[in-house]
Design a protein around this nucleic acid. Structure first.
Lengths: 181, 181
DNA sequence: GGGTGTTCCTTGAACCTTGAACTATCTCGG
DNA sequence: CCGAGATAGTTCAAGGTTCAAGGAACACCC
């Protein structure tokens, strides 16, 4: 049996519960939901990855990095901050920025106040790539997702994803819940 | 710019349409939903990948391959079928099976009726790995997803993901829509 | 039986990701 | 100042993914 492997940091729920709702396997309904989730997310991820690889010459996540930079104050962000925004490791970001730098879309700048630090800065060329490719990407997202869902479904999806994200990364940016436990 | 988003009806959009429902960018609400989606799905994917890498020694998608095989008639599936079930390319599957074979969890068998064909067959050892690791994986999925959603949300999520998946892979198993267009 | 085209699957090179080890810098208590 | 320990970011090696190319078997047609 099982030894409750992860369990460790359950946030709100009382940890001592006998948990009658932890059966060995998923119910038939849950299985259907889970499979639909897996299918949809992998298909969408692949779809967008290919779309961007084709139209912008980079994978989806790299594109996301450029977007984050474009939205940031002086079009720059510290490496660690950027990594957190994008939900990736610093290592991965390091490689990604190296590649984007090679393409001329991002440049690095030393941080004056912390000599360990680096800023990733969106170049004009990077900005231009975004400007050129954003519409196509938005269309792809809209056609694959929003165009197919009712407003109620969109709302529901947002709420659900918000919950899931917070469950996996409790201290989300902007959230300032006191650190229970 | 703005609203009146859905209404678009069919995806078979004529390129010449004025397309009043295709604004340049997402609305604020859509953006929130989209970002929540990206955060949640990348976090969950990473979470499960790490969980399985740690507990079963393979990434999530490889685990999924073993599950598919375990559910199949003689614990075997033709390569192409397996690739379609898992929503991956045949090339990727080829590499994946090579690795799983090296681990002793899958073995290949020639198809007698089609000499081009190969079966991927789950070995006893592979079955054993599944038996050992499935509970932990199910717990992880439950804790990250189902435990946090109301029954209504679960239902809604299932419907939404079903729609999205079908949009991206119209000829899904069971669906037999004629090929309009 | 010799085209022509398709399907099944594999291969190799290029690229991306991961996790751990590593350098350099900062911080803070003595 | 010193040193222990945290933090910022990179690097290395191992592995995973993609894309384009290719070999082999099938199918059909004359």
């Amino acid at each position: 049996m099982n030894t409750a492997p992860s369990s460790g940091s359950t946030p709100a729920s009382a940890p001592e519960q006998p948990a009658p709702a932890a059966p060995r396997w998923l119910t038939a309904d849950e299985q259907r939901v889970w499979r639909a989730y897996l299918h949809a997310t992998t298909l969408l991820e692949d779809h967008l990855d290919r779309q961007l690889q084709r139209d912008a010459g980079m994978p989806h996540i790299y594109y996301g990095l450029l977007v984050k930079l474009a939205e940031s104050p002086r079009r720059r962000l510290r490496m660690t901050e950027l990594a957190m925004h994008a939900k990736i490791t610093r290592s991965r970001l390091s490689h990604a920025v190296a590649r984007l730098e090679k393409n001329g879309w991002v440049r690095r700048e030393d941080c004056p106040s912390d000599k360990r630090g680096q800023f990733a800065v969106l170049t004009d060329e990077g900005r231009e790539v975004l400007r050129r490719t954003a519409p196509g990407h938005v269309d792809a997202v809209r056609q694959a997702l929003f165009a197919r869902l009712t407003p109620e479904q969109q709302k529901s999806l947002g709420e659900i994803m918000q919950i899931v994200a917070e469950g996996l990364q409790p201290n989300e940016a902007g959230a300032d819940l006191p650190w229970l436990r």
